[in-house]
Design a protein around this nucleic acid. Sequence first.
DNA 1: TCTTGGCACTCGCAGCAAGCGAGTGCCAAC
DNA 2: GTTGGCACTCGCTTGCTGCGAGTGCCAAGA
Lengths: 340, 340
Amino acid sequence: MQEDRKLAVLRAIVGDYVSTREPVGSKALVERHHLGVSPATVRNDMAALEEEGLIAQPHTSAGRIPTDKGYRFFVDRLTQIKPMSSAEKRAISTFLEGAHDLDDVIQRSVRLLAQLTQQVAIVQYPTLARSTVRHVEVVALSPTRLLLVLILSTGRVEQRVLELPTELAEDSLIDLRSKILRAAAGQRISDAAAGLGNLADQVPPSERAQVTAVAGALVEAMSNERYDERVVVGGTANLARFGEGFDQSIKPMLEALEEHVVLLKLLGETTSSGAVTVRIGHEGPYQELATTSVVATGYGPGVEAVGSLGIVGPTRMDYPGSMAAVRAVARYVSTILDQA
Amino acid sequence: MQEDRKLAVLRAIVGDYVSTREPVGSKALVERHHLGVSPATVRNDMAALEEEGLIAQPHTSAGRIPTDKGYRFFVDRLTQIKPMSSAEKRAISTFLEGAHDLDDVIQRSVRLLAQLTQQVAIVQYPTLARSTVRHVEVVALSPTRLLLVLILSTGRVEQRVLELPTELAEDSLIDLRSKILRAAAGQRISDAAAGLGNLADQVPPSERAQVTAVAGALVEAMSNERYDERVVVGGTANLARFGEGFDQSIKPMLEALEEHVVLLKLLGETTSSGAVTVRIGHEGPYQELATTSVVATGYGPGVEAVGSLGIVGPTRMDYPGSMAAVRAVARYVSTILDQA
DNA sequence: TCTTGGCACTCGCAGCAAGCGAGTGCCAAC
DNA sequence: GTTGGCACTCGCTTGCTGCGAGTGCCAAGA
């Protein structure tokens, strides 16, 4: 028995099953792929593959379908990510470059990813933790009301309106503003927060309460977990294509899509941008989503990822295509964030 | 034949069908509701109701189900919106009052509405058109880069980074800032836009290009249609409860939920806050959603609505409950926006 | 040793028929 | 106007049968 033919059979089974949604039998296989051997031979190979746990039969008199392990093998060993066509590349870049601001970039990415893969797409907002402070602005709306604006390297803008206990004089404000800029501008979030914390010690006691309040609000804005958790979902309509048996998987899926925490966990802690990770079926953290796979990667201007994006779909999905799309979109998003 | 009993029968049919999902027959009706008459009598009433087009039989040997017209009659004439229990009221207000900013209010409203009604909830962001400008801030990030921040009465904050063709002097900036504030602060969006448009005529020609750019960007930010179109959706997981026959209606539903324009049209042009509108089945603008109903209302601090919110679900839904929930949430959102 | 054709076997599934029963419409009596 | 009775309809369940796709195994051939 030739080992490579056995693997070719596995590859063919995965391919056929993904496109037809139906268990594939030995006869159909030799017809659709010119393997140059007879069905009987293929049957022998199939028996061996089943022995190894890579494929399985739903019931006795049916064809074979890949197991999670089979998909894993397929993804790891039998496929390389196919590059996008130049037309696709062009479409991606023009579509994404039309974006105005961060929100727009994220939103377009989701749509794009969903459309390219025909799956549900998930994009995480850039996390604050790994970004730096580009600018801080303090504006007096009234003597006791301040507007704080925080601009981060990822393009995210945070703003707070702060009520002061006592009035703040005009020149104190100017002084405060420059102090804050010195302490925070250009720093990483964590360092900036530390710098701001020390600020209160550098001003006369009369202003201390106010400075503490402002610094506190800024630090709070920086460590705003709500944004760390923020993800955008798109292409839910693709769930309807799951087919008949989706009754079981569509409900947990919809539930998961509502819970951003769950989605973040699904995307996983992709800390380095570049590598596309694939989580197949039961490999994921949620029992209910045992029939779904996740293809995800990190994105970010540098090597270090500031966020994740990916797709979720049935284990029976086009892995090479999905991986290519995810990687391509992540790359384009990264370069766009770099420019901004 | 007593007219009111006939209507009681319709009410009972709607009630039973909504809770059981199954066509309801004459015998079951008299058992579950003590109508004080025999099944035969009820059958006569049913025949009359069917004659009027308020109920129908899916097939000959089955019970009756309400038609869209029947639901309409039920909603218009047979039910008054039941007030929320005080426990529910308390839950709503504490849940919504925990919100920090506008985004938070909207997000919580969606969740709340979805949970109260067990349907898909939709909340529109306050439209810019009817809000006023609370504050405008212009900040120089660098000599040729300006940050524009626009704060509106609804709590929405818009910001833009603007590249200037030429450098802008510090004192010109201060001057420009006060001019802008005079032209826009406190005005309605439309008036503010007009005022900003005239601004360029009031400055020396040397600064005209810059002022035009700034004013243009602000006007653009004010009339940002992206936000007028912005809606948030929640409770999609409730779609899974649609039951078996959802195959037909869940797909158009998911597609609609992706298209914000469609959702806005579904919510309808509710210009006055207070009245809850119900659109049943085919009454809606979309053929594909002929089996779904929409319960919506406007919200806003005053009489005039600044946005809409509502729910979408199968025509077979609990109308009194949904209407009560929609109305209650809209009221609370309105008061919270008023405070902010 | 691997490949191949043949062959018996399994088993899901479509198709059909029968019986059940919920529900109706109609009618005559109250 | 209401009610009990009764014949009738018809969808749904159950059980059965035959078909066919697909398998595993085996013996013969390369």
